[in-house]
Simulated scan of single mutants.
Amino acid sequence: MVYTNEEIEQQLFILFRRSQAIHVSTKSGDFELDRSIYGILCLLDDEGPMRLGAIAHRFRLDPSTITRQVQAVIRLGLAAKRVDPTDRRAAILNLTPLGEETIAQARAHRRQVLYSILGNWSETQRWEFLAALRRFNNTVDGWIEPDDPISSAD
């Protein structure tokens, strides 16, 4: 079967629209996490404390946009800023214990939803889907910024 760019674009849009339906919340429902807060918490959980500029770079967003999003994370008590000991003019964002617990619960919830969605798929089908997603994401990263060390690290 040959896939056209039009069909691929349509399926990507459907994937994007349906992925929004996977609600981001903690198991207890204590927090309703919007996409930007969830993304910041996941990044800090995966990679540890980071400067705000590094977070902006990772998401390929303007630093002012990240600053607004980070303020929401701090307001909720999910992360805290501290002075960067290597450059006192810069701030480092790190998860608070509440942030660590919240992101663990939210990720567990999302993974359970994915398990329900993909429950009838064979292990081989899930591995093939994962491999295709990785390849697509790596290709997009290379297309966005071919010389970016972040793109080649993912």
Rank of each mutant, 00 (worst) to 15 (best):
R89D: 05
A106Y: 05
K81T: 06
I92K: 09
R75A: 11
D87C: 05
R89P: 00
A108M: 15
A91F: 08
L78P: 06
L43D: 08
R111Q: 15
V73W: 00
Y38R: 11
D84I: 02
I40Y: 01
I117H: 09
A108Q: 13
Q71Y: 03
L118T: 12
L93S: 02
Q112N: 14
K81N: 00
G48L: 05
D84E: 09
L41S: 09
I55N: 01
R110F: 07
P85Q: 04
T102M: 11
G53N: 08
D87W: 04
Q69F: 05
W121T: 06
L98P: 00
A56K: 00
Q69Y: 07
C42E: 09
S122C: 06
T86F: 07
S64Q: 14
S122E: 10
D87K: 07
T67A: 08
H57L: 14
P49D: 06
Y38L: 10
E123V: 14
R58P: 01
P49S: 10
L44M: 00
R68W: 10
T102K: 05
I66V: 15
R89V: 03
A54P: 00
D84N: 14
V83M: 11
T102D: 07
T124Y: 12
L93M: 07
Y38I: 08
E47Q: 11
R68L: 13
I74C: 01
D84T: 03
E47W: 07
C42L: 11
V113A: 10
A72E: 10
V70P: 00
Y115A: 14
